[in-house]
């Protein structure tokens, strides 16, 4: 039996695919090729003319220590955000998995942060950690810890990590909870009979069985930290103090729209594009095949 459906009409398949193709073209292929083209151009200071300079934008970029600082910041930021949001979400999911009464309410409440816009999430944490009157900043001061993320680069990074991770916890929580509920209860019971305490059961049975979910979420969260946290950073620190929270995406914006170095900014976009492509390739080739049990 023929498994594929075949079309006799030559145009029908293209017509059916058209909406998807048009959207991909307008919102991805076209701007991406524009960025690629622009990354080879050098604009004059007034934006009146441009010159084709081949790879000079990239050469400048790779000899700029600030760019490597930004790469470094991005890696620290995304690793910390991913770890914080995944571990918290896993903890919540394990707890929620045990809840018998009021499960729906608990799940619903835990899901809400995901519906909060990034900038709003950022502002929320900004208020709480505001050095002059933020509730958490004041509490820290009472404890003898001087919180001032406006001056301290490290603290600023911690703040954006918390804000970014908080927003992602809900998403991770749902996946972890679903993953936990997929694990047959009898496996846990068998392990209990086999003499494994709750902690041992978690690390030797549950955690390994969750690994497909965990790897999927790591990729999703890294991509999120790389590309979707602009709003949070823009609302909280604007990349400061002194570029200590300037991740790659924020640098694209800063150099392009504030510094008006359109060519250099486009070159950075192109590099980011390759990072996304390679992360996707990793997800499809490595993770989806290898992480099975």
């Amino acid at each position: 039996m023929e498994k594929r459906s075949t079309f006799n009409n030559l145009w029908l398949p293209y017509l059916l695919l058209a909406p998807q193709i048009i959207i991909t073209f307008i919102f991805f292929i076209w701007p991406a090729s524009q960025a690629l083209y622009q990354s080879f151009l050098l604009e004059d200071a007034f934006g009146l003319s441009s010159e084709f300079i081949w790879f000079e934008n990239f050469e400048v970029l790779f000899s700029d220590p600030l760019y490597f600082d930004s790469i470094n910041t991005t890696f620290i930021f995304s690793a910390a955000t991913t770890f914080l949001s995944l571990s918290t979400a896993l903890l919540f999911a394990v707890m929620a998995d045990r809840v018998i009464r009021g499960e729906m309410a608990y799940k619903t409440i835990l899901t809400w942060p995901y519906a909060v816009a990034p900038a709003v999430a950022g502002v929320l944490w900004l208020f709480m950690f505001s050095p002059s009157n933020g509730i958490l900043a004041l509490a820290l001061k009472d404890w003898g810890y001087d919180w001032n993320h406006i001056l301290q680069g490290g603290q600023a990074l911690v703040l954006v990590v918390i804000a970014a991770a908080w927003k992602q916890i809900a998403y991770n929580f749902i996946f972890f909870l679903a993953g936990l509920q997929m694990i047959p209860k009898s496996l846990i019971e068998a392990a209990a009979i086999d003499g494994a305490g709750p902690a041992k059961r978690f690390w030797t049975i549950i955690f390994p069985l969750l690994s497909p979910t965990t790897f999927f979420l790591i990729v999703v969260n890294v991509v999120y930290a790389f590309f979707d946290t602009f709003g949070i950073i823009h609302a909280v620190t604007q990349g400061g103090p002194y570029k200590s929270t300037e991740i790659l995406v924020y640098k694209v914006y800063n150099d392009g729209f504030i510094g008006l170095d359109l060519g250099g900014s486009a070159a950075q976009s192109v590099i980011l594009m390759f990072i996304v492509i390679s992360l996707t390739v990793i997800q499809f080739r490595y993770i989806e095949r290898r992480v099975k049990y």
Partner: peptide, 20 residues
């Protein structure tokens, strides 16, 4: 007593083998 402390062994209907 906890299942582990009863010195019993159980065979489950779905076997409950640790798949990994």
């Amino acid at each position: 007593k906890e299942p582990a402390d009863r010195d019993i062994a159980m065979v489950f209907q779905n076997y409950a083998l640790y798949p990994h």
